[in-house]
């Protein structure tokens, strides 16, 4: 190893190489590739959760507003059975919207698409 004083700013290349080899592992490249996949997955999941957290309640609120507007502007008083169905549908939408898991989000989007 190179003899260096406290005030030398250069590297001890020999000790550095020894340490690098010692701290490295044979599967470093595979591990790095695995971490890349994990990083992308983590980033996508976070992004999706963020979208789900802010967008789905918005969709649900819009659906409820549209339902109320439809009933008001339609002029006709809905039949009790239809009113119950509309209420139940709105409740389900709110329930789906409050579920921020990917499955819940997909279900709500499927409903919206339909």
């Amino acid at each position: 190893m190179t003899e260096l004083s406290e005030f030398t700013s250069g590297r001890d290349e020999e000790l550095g190489a020894l340490l690098r080899a010692h701290l490295s592992a044979p599967d470093d490249v595979v591990f790095a590739a695995r971490m890349r996949i994990a990083a992308v997955a983590a980033a996508n999941e976070t992004a999706w959760r963020s979208v789900a957290r802010w967008t789905l309640p918005g969709f649900a609120a819009a659906a409820v507003v549209l339902a109320v507007l439809g009933a008001t502007l339609g002029g006709a008083t809905p039949e009790p059975a239809a009113r119950t169905a509309a209420g139940s549908a709105a409740g389900s939408l709110v329930e789906l919207a409050s579920d921020t898991s990917p499955a819940g989000s997909v279900a709500l989007l499927a409903v919206m698409a339909y």
Binding site: L23, F31, A32, R36, V40
Partner: peptide
Amino acid sequence: FGALVERHTQRARR
């Protein structure tokens, strides 16, 4: 982000 992580993982692991 994944590409950056892959680039720096070996050093991070050491």
